[in-house]
Simulated scan of single mutants.
Amino acid sequence: MKRIAEADLCAWATRALTAVGVPDADAAHIARCLVDVDLRGVKSHGTRQLRRYVGEFRDGRVNPTPQIRTLREGGNIIRLDGDGGAGYLVATQAVDAACAKAKAEGLALASTCNHGHVGSAGIYARRALKHGLISWGMAGGASWTKTEDPQATVWNSMQAPPLCFGVPADDGGPPLVLDMNANQFKHGTDPEEALAAGYGRSVFGSLGMRFVSTLVAGALSGTLEEGVERRFEAATRGFFFVVVDPDLVGDGAAWRVRVREIIDESLTLPPMRGTEQAALPGTLEWRRERERKETGIPLPDDHREMLDAIAADLGIGPPEWRD
């Protein structure tokens, strides 16, 4: 395993994306999102995703130069069409607009359609946290079809999209960010075995979250406007984001102080058996991010080799790894 400095990885990822036609500013934003996820140690959704994205852009399955447009906007709503581009671009624009509206109106809803993968849902919750706002977001695919696998059960009727809740707290400690896959079981886990082992609530809870995310963020939010054709094969995603200003309910500043106290006091309790340290959702990511900004981002050999292979394929220099 080798490490790489945050700035070096971000600069290299930007070059990789511009090499497949993504404009400089858009490439830098996508790269920043991916590197932030690597800083937090979410292994699946950081720069590992570049292999997928580079292929989608190069093969014309995602639009490298989208012209995002507003489909609908009101006092506390906004709906955007991503023009077949990267989900990060349209989702960020939608979330930022929703945060501004929530600060003015108390709560706001953003939805998007016609774009690719939005990445880790925690990216967007953390944007809302910077404004002291509560958020709930989820993503889903719009192109649902019934599985034809003869061995499938109702469990296989849905994929497992992401959803995320963000709760703001005063500065000085980790936030509460519940960034999760709708499926709470490892890939390959047999749900029927889990049912037999007594985990029925977890199985049906996961199944329910899979349906909620797909139906709301995919089938509702991801559906194109009437008469609009889907021009980019991989631009099948939708995104749904609700943001609330706690001042709409009570004294937001006092509440955020109380949240900070509750989180900090909870983390003084012993860790659960089988874990090394007491943590809440978002705690470990916060700790890793702070550490890795100083020490560099550790990437396992398979991850490093994948990025080196992308560099060779694109004809750009490899990332600047530390010894």
Rank of each mutant, 00 (worst) to 15 (best):
F239V: 03
R58W: 08
G84N: 04
Y53N: 13
M209V: 07
R256W: 02
D38N: 05
P319F: 08
F185A: 00
G84F: 05
G274C: 07
A278N: 13
M180K: 04
H117R: 15
D245R: 07
E6F: 14
L107I: 14
R69C: 10
T14F: 10
D38F: 00
D24A: 15
R273W: 13
A19I: 06
R69K: 15
E225F: 13
G87Y: 09
G222E: 10
E285H: 03
T189W: 05
L9N: 06
M306F: 09
A219H: 15
V212N: 00
G74H: 09
W321G: 01
R52Y: 09
L163M: 11
G87L: 14
R288I: 06
Y124A: 10
G188R: 06
R201A: 00
G122Y: 02
G222R: 07
Q151S: 03
A196K: 00
R79Y: 10
L107Y: 07
R51Q: 12
W144R: 15
A197T: 01
P270M: 05
K2C: 07
A139Y: 01
G222F: 04
L133E: 05
L109E: 05
G282C: 02
D179Y: 00
P174E: 13
M272N: 14
K43M: 09
A97Q: 08
D59E: 13
I297A: 04
F239E: 10
E285D: 13
M158D: 04
L9Q: 07
V242M: 08
L280F: 02
E289S: 11
I30K: 05
I310S: 11
G173M: 05
Q277R: 13
A102N: 13
F241R: 05
G172I: 15
G82M: 04
A98T: 12
R288M: 07
A253D: 11
G122K: 03
G106M: 06
Q151P: 08
D264A: 15
